[in-house]
Write a protein that binds this DNA or RNA. Sequence first.
DNA 1: ACTCAATGTCTAGAAAACATAACATAACGC
DNA 2: GCGTTATGTTATGTTTTCTAGACATTGAGT
Lengths: 76, 76
Amino acid sequence: MAERRLSNTIRTLRFMAGEMTQAELGERIGVTRQTIAAIEAGKYSPTLEAAFRIAEVFGKPLEEVFQWGISSTLDK
Amino acid sequence: MAERRLSNTIRTLRFMAGEMTQAELGERIGVTRQTIAAIEAGKYSPTLEAAFRIAEVFGKPLEEVFQWGISSTLDK
DNA sequence: ACTCAATGTCTAGAAAACATAACATAACGC
DNA sequence: GCGTTATGTTATGTTTTCTAGACATTGAGT
């Protein structure tokens, strides 16, 4: 069965943006570094607003930083 | 000052999709009709996952149903 | 070896997103 | 009129996101 789940490319985008730190990204969008870490790790799905702000920081469209994935049966 | 806030076109998309009801949209994405009503009314910002599911129902990209608006000084 | 910055991770609690149920109203067909 | 269906709205409660603090680890620089 095809399962849908969220994934993101925040980590790579941070490093492409001059090694931006989790803490710095957090304060730029108004959340704590723990929240950024949890979002990066996929521990929970952020609010749309937070997602838009993150995309804005990197100057990318939202769907380029967050993917509503069609994962195969392989992943648990 | 330029304020950023969320807006959406769910209402018009619902009617363009054959007068789809709030209740039907809700059960298609797994939330209640009250939640759909609140999201439509902008009373709170949905989770990214819910947003992706809504866009999926209408077959539209997420940014076409939700806008991270640059509103002018006019709106409160 | 020592410091320090960045991240991982855990906890307790606040805040926001959600559920469920109730009641109200307006529009429709009968 | 009557019944039904869609929506608005309010209240109460649960779940999830997020905060704030702490402590551990790892790596880069000195």
